[in-house]
Write a protein that binds this DNA or RNA. Structure first.
Lengths: 192, 192
DNA sequence: CTGATTAAGTAACATTTGTGAAGTGCCGTT
DNA sequence: AACGGCACTTCACAAATGTTACTTAATCAG
């Protein structure tokens, strides 16, 4: 479990023994079943989650009450409503397990503590935050410039694992299109 | 000039005399003409800019070579390719003055220095960074869930000043639609 | 096993948005 | 004043996407 996290961190920054001990002491392993909502819209996000296995999403509702998926992780990676977690203000999104998920979680207080103790972990936490920023920038650019079909083709190439493990309706709303439009696009693509 | 900046900061955090002195010492006023590109794609962003007056945008190019505007500020506010400025890596976007602009700029080195000297300014810089994150989240959500017409209506209400001072072609690409589609939508709206 | 529920696919049609050609008005240059 | 360039508009048509209604397949509770 924890080794998975440490490998991910070390692919970005070098860790010494104290850094590793901090992670082992403050990241808590948890297991959630499929469809469990672990952070709720309107509540202050309690934890930052590292996904060891499973698939997880952020979603909210549009003006007609339809679910809109704004983030789908692929393990290994971090997920939370970053901005609301950092500010400790009520989130605008729900965090839901799409499948059974093995996670490692850390509270805001503990995260603040360990990044204050360890410069390497501080650098890493900034990196995680900035990755989330890139994610939204890239999503907005794709939505603004690509057709629905191109958005799907691009998603298919970059996240094949998500495609095979996440309901298509979630992927459709993440890609900013109707599930039936996604069906049509998928049919068109397989036929060539 | 600088008072405009200080007012903006103080609407978020309280400043003491030392904080104010730091801002006065390290933010440098600059004046750029209309259409000047002040940070270039592929280059490391040198400064964070505070817009005192004027309009400014971030833009890049899509696969067909068309300009895509990804951010249009309205004064007073900050602008830069935040992530690339923070990391000091080559930016993916150009920063261009849409009109003559009075700006206050600060280099990465100086920003790091003043936020290290002043907890209030550090809090504020984090807030600025997070505002930029919200901006992209909101843009992505609008692009994913609203029709072109609704995106324009929403933009019209929230940024009337931009609408009246920025070429419509820039607004169209920011809203993820063709300039002609925007023309049609504008015509439809005025006729009711 | 049966019936109910849900996700996904299909088809026909409606609506929205993109595209190409052409026109208007504005602004600056000469 | 005449000219060219540019931003914006307009129109007709094409293409993409949304919508409604229906079908299929898989899953789950009884």
């Amino acid at each position: 479990m924890i080794q998975n996290l440490l490998n991910t961190i070390e692919s970005c920054v070098a860790l010494n023994k104290e850094d590793i001990a901090l992670c082992e002491a403050y990241f808590e392993p948890v297991l959630y079943p499929k469809n469990r909502i672990i952070e709720e819209e309107g509540q202050i996000p309690r934890y930052l989650y590292f996904v060891v296995s499973g698939f997880i999403r952020l979603f909210s509702y549009d003006k007609d009450g339809n679910e809109v998926t704004s983030h789908i992780n692929c393990p290994p990676g971090f997920i939370t409503s970053y901005r609301h977690f950092s500010d400790q203000v009520p989130a605008g999104e729900n965090l839901e397990c799409i499948s059974e998920c093995h996670l490692l979680r850390i509270s805001k207080k503990d995260l603040d503590y360990i990044i204050n103790e360890s410069p390497a972990l501080k650098d890493f936490s900034i990196w995680v935050f900035q990755q989330s920023m890139s994610y939204n920038e890239n999503r907005a650019k794709a939505l603004a410039t690509l057709t629905a079909e191109d958005r799907y083709l691009h998603f298919m190439k970059s996240h094949p694992d998500v495609l095979h493990n996440v309901p298509l309706q979630y992927i459709a709303s993440f890609l900013g299109m109707n599930p039936k439009s996604l069906s049509r696009i998928r049919k068109k693509i397989t036929g060539r």
